[in-house]
Design a protein around this nucleic acid. Structure first.
Lengths: 234, 234
DNA sequence: GAAAAATCAAGAGCAGTGCTCTCTAAATGG
DNA sequence: CCATTTAGAGAGCACTGCTCTTGATTTTTC
């Protein structure tokens, strides 16, 4: 498809710069037009005719895919970085760092957040590449739970066991990301994860207007509660 | 703007039918095109020229607003109905009925759900009408919590108090929807609400692929856990 | 270093879009 | 019955994603 070129040529460098610039402009247009941004407008901003864009992205969907991939990786990297700055044994603080990083990143770039955690773009189907990038953030929570479990700082709960099918699902998730964590605790971890993104989505998508105004405070309270819910200690 | 006509004329009836038919066709197109559906395509399906639609809706945004309003009311009605079928003193069952109703409605109409709980349509701003319709569903949870509190079937929790600002926010919510419910309990109620919609959004928007396959089971487990988290008894 | 191959941007063009305006036909109300 | 209101048709404007061709520029190959 998209032509290949030897890695070290001038063309290859210019091409990479062009590609990056297109994505950068597209990200800006995301703010005003959402997922149905105008390729022609991007081309205009780039000072180039619209058909030229197709040398870099075969279609608008392909551009969107690139933006989605970038967004997942940016969020993942942001979360990783925030968590890495907290001492390993401070499990609750690590979780809070993760939660704050997600919220901060999302509120700073509502459109990119909407692109990856909002309604799926109709007619668009995510390729496999995005699936791995999408798990970067949640892996961090897995490590926190694992470390807490290893340190004996993960309080057990008395939840009833999950039914067979979902117990297998959650068990598999636990094995992959945090092998030392019991199934019901992992279920609570997933619940906290869902709550985190539910909270951020409600806030970013405007579902909390006329309900809670002091949202940073409220978020903080809820995320601390989730830390206790998961059983995190220390 | 949109012309007024005497209520009982033939025209008024035909007009109402037309309006409903346009919305019905638009809802179908929502499935394939999402929020940026084509008025022209709707007109074609209706067997009418595109400009004729503008006799009924001043713009595509106005059509979308109507669909959003209908969706909020449909979900609200569905939740109310499901909850009303459960005995008043069975608080946990009432909550579960609410949760299942939300999930069922959302999975049956992913596009309408995405319209109201997904990324906001860019450039579109929700008028005040939608705000009231949007609260119909959550009011039901308020009543459940209130009834449980009145019956002495709402276990207290030892959460730390919320910080001043958000305590006021949550307190105001409690006063409006469930005046007998303590602030930290109300916060847990809101958390459960967010978790419910986070779970449904993750499922509907495809964020749970390759993670949990037995989603109905998993959802059931998580919602029961949320019932305990809120302190619901009976 | 010249010829061949690959890559690029431009421009025209197609089918589609939301929306406006003008025009005619029909229903309504006095 | 006749003036007024309303519905729909049709043309048109500026826009969209995308394709194809054409000429220029760079890279590769001999």
């Amino acid at each position: 498809m998209m032509g290949r070129v030897k890695a070290n040529s001038i063309r290859a460098r210019v091409r990479a710069e062009m590609t990056e610039e297109i994505k950068e402009i597209a990200r800006r247009h995301l703010a005003t037009d959402g997922a149905n941004l105008s390729l022609r407008a991007v081309a205009r901003d780039l000072g180039v005719v619209s058909s030229a864009i197709y040398r870099y992205f075969a279609s608008r969907d392909e551009l969107l895919t690139a933006l989605i991939l970038d967004a997942y990786n940016a969020l993942g990297g942001c979360v990783e970085e925030a968590e890495a700055a907290v001492p390993r044994e401070a499990h609750t603080a690590r979780w809070l760092a993760v939660a704050r990083a997600v919220r901060g990143w999302a509120l700073e770039r509502p459109h990119e957040y909407a692109l990856i955690y909002g309604s799926p773009v109709p007619g668009y189907h995510a390729p496999e590449d995005t699936v791995v990038a999408a798990t970067r953030a949640v892996r961090v929570l897995g490590r926190v739970l694992q470390d807490a479990a290893d340190a004996g700082a993960l309080a057990p709960n008395d939840d009833p066991p999950l039914p067979d099918g979902s117990a297998g699902d959650v068990g598999r998730v636990a094995e992959t990301f945090a092998p030392g964590v019991p199934v019901t605790t992992m279920a609570r971890g997933l619940s906290a994860w869902v709550t985190l993104f539910g909270q951020v989505s409600f806030e970013s998508f405007g579902q909390m207007r006329n309900t809670v105004d002091n949202r940073a405070e409220f978020f903080e309270h809820q995320m601390r509660a989730q830390a206790r819910y998961m059983g995190l200690q220390g």
